[in-house]
């Protein structure tokens, strides 16, 4: 699971109102290089939840993203330093083993072989 996928997942247990973002407990993280696409990243930047991304990246051991969401000038600048970091955090870090934890209830959703298991128990739906 990459952080772009994590950026949309929330805990859907019945009655939970603050199920986003899920905290990441990481056991194994792997990095896989993919092609850099600045236009895609600019487009994505407008859609992602910045705080969820920064926290997620940190819990996976990547500390390079700024705490506060940068402004548009940094995205358009010729210096692609920021976009490279965004690229790495969103698309190259994979949580292989670990868990996603609901911020409200503490319920853990295990992540094995890269796949988060978001299935709910009978008493949670």
């Amino acid at each position: 699971m990459r952080l772009i996928t994590h950026n949309m997942l929330s805990c859907n247990i019945k009655g939970v109102t603050n199920g986003f973002p899920l905290k990441i407990e990481s056991v194994t993280v792997v990095e896989k290089e993919v092609d850099f696409n600045p236009d895609f990243l600019r487009h994505m930047f407008a859609k992602i939840e910045w705080k969820a991304l920064v926290e997620g990246a940190r819990s996976m051991g990547y500390e390079e993203l700024p705490e506060d969401s940068p402004d548009a000038s940094e995205l358009e600048s010729d210096d692609e330093t920021f976009l490279r970091k965004l690229h790495h955090a969103l698309l190259e870090l994979h949580l292989e083993e670990g868990a996603l934890v609901c911020p409200e209830t503490g319920r853990k959703f295990p992540v094995n072989k890269g796949i988060p298991n978001m299935l709910l128990h009978e008493d949670e739906v």
Binding site: M1, R2, I4, T5, N7, M8, L9, S10, N12, F20, K32, V34, M44, K47, I48, E49, L91, G114, I115, P116, N117, M118, L119, L120, V125
Partner: peptide, 20 residues
Amino acid sequence: VEIDFVQCDITKLQLKGKIV
């Protein structure tokens, strides 16, 4: 190819935002 997979019940899934 790189594909992320998520195990879930589609009918219970609520994805946040407009990323897709």
